[in-house]
Amino acid sequence: MLTEVKNQFKVSLLSIKYSILRSMINKSSFLFSVLLMFISNASFLVQWIIILSVSDGADLSMKQILFLWGIMAGAYGLSNIIFCGVHYLPQYIISGKLDAYLVQPKSVLISIATSQTSMSAFGDLLYGYAVVLIASPSVITFLYASLFIITGAIIYACFVTIMYSLLFFSINFRDLVTTLTRIPTSFGTYPENIFSGVLKVLLYTIFPIGFIVYLPVRVLLTNNILIALIVILFTIFMVVFAFVMFNMGLKRYSSTNLMNARV
């Protein structure tokens, strides 16, 4: 069992390495994408600076906004560096590209997740760390931020996996499911305080933004270890749930004979 996990880990690292190498083939394009993403994210902060300067901002502080953006951008970035392949699941399921992974003695989901990477995601990750450390430049903030960027990346990848696993049951949901996968990034850059009622419940259940960003921000602001523990436990739950859903769907996979290339 331990050897199996060790071997899977070794292959996953190799897969991530090759995916990153692919994205860096054109160095100038890579650096430009990273820089543009950094600038694009920064422009949203300017928006918040303006909002906070004209409003009372009783429940909001610039520090909270910086943490929010930092964790969200970092988690999104890391998720798209390591697990970007989950976004390709619809294409793999519909065009029969899972075949190549099913004949290999490794986890299909992990192999697919680590088979792709996004160039601009490096910009998100760098930006995430930069913003968090601007808000609170300390070792403890760096450690907490690293923990929550990792848990957030895993939760987000699991959420996308669960959504796309529904396509095994009916490919007609493709557009709907793709829209749903974008919800965490849309809501995750606004503070928790502005949401209430059913919407807030949804953000802590079906769309787990609460666990990706809201609870981590609370930990960064209050240093509450118990909340950190809840986030870690929820991450484990999401991993198990994503694997269960994907494997259930895999049994219904029908493959196709369309021509494909792994590019």
């Binding site: 090759y18 190498l21 692919r22 083939i25 029969g96 590209k97 075949d99 190549a100 004949v103 290999q104 003695p105 004979n257 369309l258 021509m259 494909n260 290339a261 792994r262 590019v263």
Partner: peptide
């Protein structure tokens, strides 16, 4: 999977880069 090999002429398994 350890005991079989597969070649699908219509589907590539190799990483092209």
């Amino acid at each position: 999977a350890y005991k079989i090999g597969t070649v699908f002429g219509q589907k590539e398994q190799l990483w092209t880069h």
